[in-house]
């Protein structure tokens, strides 16, 4: 054995040309793909599962709608008919899956991404000391960091992009325009599972997790802290969300409801002298007895897109800030 060491060294100088060939992925990209193997697989499996689920929801809804149309049971007026009601009831299963399982799951996805992908990403490198292994290589630590973040970042972008698109499509085609269309877009589990919200929130949670992991340097505390901060951030944004876009302010006939699918922010009555009193104040008093009309402040369903864009822009700015801090803190 020891002889091999000695005599085998004769050819060592020529070893540079003897590198294994046919490697498709090289350098840092290979390392980051290898390091993110579990993350990439998990995201891929998640996308496939949710996509299959959504496809099933779509096909099942279409099937029920087809049956209803053929039997003349499509319109709500016919549903008092027992036979039509029986034909309608299979729609409940796909609708239940969408509204009660997929929407909450997609709502929770950014938090899970922050906790399980973002927080451990650097925390584990510090906790296991492998950051020092990386620092001992010839590559610049910031270049490594860029690659280390780009691969999961793009994977999260792609996965949540696909999920958000499919969720929005099924929502639009089968829920909103379905026979029992009722799922106002601004609801707690509806809004975050629509449009650009899942993508923007996931990227933000990922970046926040990475930053927390770099600051805390221990995996479990970083995961807990990231989860708490994402939840707090969600609460704050939800509180501020009505003001991301100008409200519609209307005076309507007394006690008239706000439009279907809109988001009512505040309402009250207009008194004879033209002054406005919020409904909350009127309750159980005689103060509002002389009201002449109602006033409502709300976001119509059409405000969904601009509000989501403003929110996404805000989150992406915060994401960029978090990443800038992470890069600055990584000594070159």
């Amino acid at each position: 054995m020891s002889m091999n060491v000695l005599t085998g060294r004769a050819g060592a100088t020529a070893s540079a040309s003897r590198r294994p060939t046919a490697r498709r992925v090289r350098g840092l990209l290979w390392l980051t793909l290898r390091q993110n193997r579990a993350v990439l697989w998990t995201l891929a499996v998640l996308v496939v599962l949710v996509a299959a689920d959504l496809l099933w929801i779509h096909i099942a809804s279409r099937h029920v709608v087809g049956v209803l149309r053929r039997t003349g049971c499509y319109y709500p007026e016919t549903w008092s008919n027992g036979q039509c009601w029986t034909l309608l009831s299979p729609i409940n299963r796909p609708t239940y899956w969408y509204v009660s399982i997929l929407q909450p799951a997609v709502t929770a996805l950014p938090l899970l991404i922050g906790v399980f992908i973002g927080a451990p990403l650097l925390a584990q490198e510090y906790e296991r000391g492998t950051i020092r292994l990386i620092r001992a290589q010839s590559v610049s630590p910031r270049r490594w960091l860029a690659s280390r973040l780009a691969v999961p970042g793009l994977a999260v972008l792609a996965a949540t992009g696909v999920l958000a698109a499919l969720m929005s499509w099924v929502w639009w085609v089968d829920i909103v325009h379905g026979p029992i269309a009722f799922d106002p877009p601004f609801q707690f589990f509806t809004y975050p599972a629509l449009g650009v919200a899942p993508v923007a929130w996931s990227l933000f949670a990922l970046a926040l997790g990475v930053l927390i992991g770099q600051l805390v340097r221990r995996t479990l505390p970083a995961m807990f802290l990231t989860g708490a901060l994402v939840a707090i951030m969600y609460g704050l944004v939800r509180w501020a969300r009505p003001y991301f876009y100008p409200l519609v302010d209307q005076v309507v006939p007394l006690n008239e409801a706000h439009p279907t699918n809109s988001w009512l922010i505040d309402r009250g009555v207009v008194m004879a002298d033209g002054s406005r009193v919020s409904t909350d104040v009127c309750l159980g008093t005689v103060r509002c007895d002389g009201a002449t009309a109602s006033w409502i402040q709300y976001h119509p369903a059409a405000h969904l897109v601009p509000i989501q864009l403003v929110e996404a822009a805000l989150l992406l700015v915060l994401t960029a800030v978090a990443l800038a801090v992470v890069f600055r803190r990584m000594r070159p």
Partner: peptide, 13 residues
């Protein structure tokens, strides 16, 4: 594992 003829052979005790 070809060794040049003049290379000394070294053995670990």
């Amino acid at each position: 594992m070809v060794r040049a003829p003049d290379t000394p052979r070294v053995r670990l005790d």
